[in-house]
């Protein structure tokens, strides 16, 4: 069923019909995360002063050190924000573990056959091949997003653990602190590598504009869902149909009841 050949009235209907994709907890956590990353990433890069790495330009190092009043204060800021970030994230996950995290992990994170097919096709399409091949239908998150989700989850764990090791430097042995540093930045930059696409897709790419606004409203249009996350859309439809069936049954039952009661009163 082609997405482009839908008649206009149906399109309008689909555009105005909204599905809830994100709950409030998700939305808040996401934007909290954005804020923390905005604070942590630049300060973190500014801390990296080793000329052997050459990752951080000198002017940036100096600017941040001057703004924060020295290396120590810059680092203090970085790890204080980092600890707050860790605390909130861990707290959220623990509090919402059964209600949000487990279902989320179970229904939205696992890769299925379609996802693998998608992964085989999409990169090639992006490079301009197999233009005409239809992409397999996708879940609430597409396979690329799912894959990136794994990077984010393991990266975040890596950042947190190594960050804690480096923050509480009195407690941990030097070897651990030596290892913690590459772990920290490898994690950060793995996430950053995906983040560039994530931010671009979310904030700039016109097709995904709905996704961006959904991070505020929590909702996407049926149109968008149908186009990008067909499986999820279908599931939503099924849910809806099941609900309609339920309503119909209910109505039928109440009509029947009404019918039985009617004669009695008529007597």
């Amino acid at each position: 069923m082609g997405h482009k050949n839908i008649p206009l009235p149906e399109r309008r209907r689909l555009r105005s019909k909204m599905y809830k994709k994100h709950n409030l907890a998700n939305i808040l956590t996401h934007w909290f995360n954005v804020g923390m990353w905005l604070l942590l990433l630049p300060t973190g890069i500014a801390i990296l002063s080793s000329p052997r790495l050459g990752l951080s330009p000198l002017w940036m190092q100096e600017m941040f050190r001057n703004v924060f009043g020295g290396t120590a204060n810059l680092i203090r800021f970085h790890y204080t924000v980092g600890l707050l970030w860790i605390f909130v994230l861990v707290f959220n996950i623990l509090v919402g573990f059964r209600r949000y995290f487990v279902p989320f992990a179970a229904t939205r994170l696992l890769l299925d056959q379609d996802d693998i097919e998608w992964l085989k096709t999409k990169p090639l399409q992006m490079l301009g091949f197999m233009k005409d091949k239809e992409l397999p239908p996708q879940d609430a998150y597409n396979a690329g997003q799912k894959l990136y989700m794994y990077v984010v989850i393991f990266g975040t764990i890596g950042i947190m653990v190594s960050g804690v090791v480096m923050t509480f430097n009195q407690v941990f042995p030097p070897l651990l602190k030596q290892i913690a540093q590459p772990v920290h930045w490898v994690s950060v930059f793995s996430i950053v590598a995906g983040l560039i696409i994530h931010v671009y897709m979310g904030a700039v790419f016109p097709e995904e504009k709905e996704a961006f606004f959904s991070m505020f409203s929590g909702k996407v249009s049926a149109w968008y869902a149908r186009a990008h996350h067909e499986k999820w859309y279908n599931e939503k439809l099924r849910e809806e149909m099941a609900w309609e069936d339920l309503v119909r049954q209910e109505l039928a039952r109440s009509a029947e009841q009404h019918a039985q009661e009617q004669p009695a009163t008529a007597d």
Binding site: G70, T71, A72, L74, I75, R76, M166, N169, P174, K177, Q178, A180, Q181
Partner: peptide, 12 residues
């Protein structure tokens, strides 16, 4: 700067 040092020992 001990306040900025985490004691990883690269420099050692």
């Amino acid at each position: 700067d001990q306040d900025a040092c985490i004691g990883c020992g690269y420099c050692v």
